[in-house]
Nucleic acid binder design. Structure first.
Lengths: 257, 257
DNA sequence: TCCAATACTTTACGCCATAAAGAATCAACG
DNA sequence: CGTTGATTCTTTATGGCGTAAAGTATTGGA
């Protein structure tokens, strides 16, 4: 299940995102938890166990039952929203433009790529309905700021911002899920690929003849960095190459009106 | 939950994908179903109800219990794999190159975009572990074929193929999920956005000053086609713009060595 | 005719999110 | 100082999910 953002009461969600919890002097037992603590626990659990994290797991990590969380947070969806936005706080929001927009965008993209690698579950949070939280805003604002310095009009930049976002996300997703495929250890990785490929070639021996272009793409390789596992090499190379082409396109748009 | 492809026995999965079910004369009652029928039912259910489709629902549509499906298919993951690959069969796999690669790629991308619109659940199927089915191969092979005609070496094309895929997927995801946000009818769409935005502006009145670049991007609009709903306009415009930039980048790569 | 394989159902298990109700705790008011 | 009412947290229960296990009915071949 992709987690859709903000199914619940929009007011409550947005207040939580932008205001945090307002604590006054109220009757009743002192709260033993806080929204912040719950969000942090949620992030920790998700980082460890992926999106299979559950309210039970988050509660357990805090020494409570799952239901205790519902005192602070309307439901799982809203918690995910908060986790999503909170995590984004760790991204830089100020890139120097001294060398122009291109190095800045490149750095932004690489940071984003690494961010997704650190928090794979973020990629599962629905994208289209933006969470509309402050940190997500800040991160996108920064990309916009960098790109505005190209001089291109906003109406053209919107597609570009989207393209860069989609690209980084997609590329990150590829590597992240490929890693996950290997299992918890991250080691059985190549074996998994190998098992699949072997069976595939056994069943379809003439695969390379049936799909000659894919074969061509697969086999025309640059020398790889032997210190990295195969998949990381592959993904990083493709990421750099794709980003380069994308930014070349932007450059073209900047050059001619 | 994003549905990961192929958790089970790789041999069984791949055989199902590439060979279909082998039916001989065996003892026991005649099968009342077939893998094909189940896959079709699965696609129908998913098209209607989104990824919340369940084994029970698929079984029901065929007048069986959920467990009956397990006679034909190892599990839900494998069924999703089969659905995924089967759906892709409806995509064209031969674009004319008479006018060069660019119109062909553009058409490929638009077809893909519409495909995702027809089958939104496909976007939820895990990307990174490719399903490795014949139709997915064919679709990607075709994109590769088009791009090989640019004369670029395979090693450079790999990043480009990735970038185009990610972009189309991302852009489609945005519009598809935005549609879904509106609810089953697809009508409450703008209202949903409006509700969120209104609350956001109420809580953060100086939003536009805090994020001036986003504001700039948002407000610099082209005249829109009044026959389409707002969101479709927006998404389509961004899709075209982003794709153009991306392909400009490819063109740049083609021009200079 | 009987055996063994097959198709399918029923039942059950362990997850999940979360609704509903109850127990314990505390500030404020009479 | 005792009571009230709000608040935190637990317990229990509901209805969903994928699928394991066991049972029943059906069939081709020996």
């Amino acid at each position: 299940m992709v987690v859709y953002a903000g199914q619940g009461d929009p007011r409550r969600s947005i207040e939580l995102l932008w205001r945090g919890s307002t604590v006054e002097n109220r009757p009743g037992p002192k709260p033993g938890l806080s929204v912040d603590a719950i969000v942090d626990a949620g992030i920790a659990v998700a980082d460890e166990q992926g999106m299979a994290f559950s309210m039970r797991a988050v509660g357990e990590r805090l020494g409570r039952t799952a239901m205790a969380l519902y005192t602070y947070v309307p439901g799982k969806n809203e918690l995910v929203d908060l986790m999503y936005d909170r995590t984004m706080a760790e991204l830089p929001t100020s890139y120097p433009l001294d060398d122009g927009w291109r190095p800045a965008v490149t750095q932004w993209a690489h940071d984003m790529w690494e961010f997704y690698g650190r928090h794979p579950w973020v990629l599962q949070v629905s994208q289209a309905r933006p969470v509309l939280g402050p940190h997500e805003f800040a991160v996108t604002e920064e990309l916009a700021r960098i790109l505005v310095s190209t001089g291109l009009p906003g109406r053209r930049l919107r597609g570009i911002v989207g393209a860069i976002n989609y690209f980084v996300r997609g590329a990150a997703q590829t590597i992240v899920e490929a890693r996950a495929a290997g299992g918890a250890t991250g080691e059985a990785d190549e074996e998994w690929w190998y098992a699949r490929s072997a069976v595939l070639l056994e069943i379809q021996p003439d695969l390379e003849k049936k799909f000659p272009m894919l074969h061509l793409l697969e086999t025309d390789r640059e020398p790889i960095d032997p210190t990295l596992p195969y998949l990381e090499n592959d993904a990083l190379e493709n990421f750099r190459g794709g980003l380069k082409v994308l930014l070349d396109g932007v450059e073209g748009a900047v050059a001619k009106p």
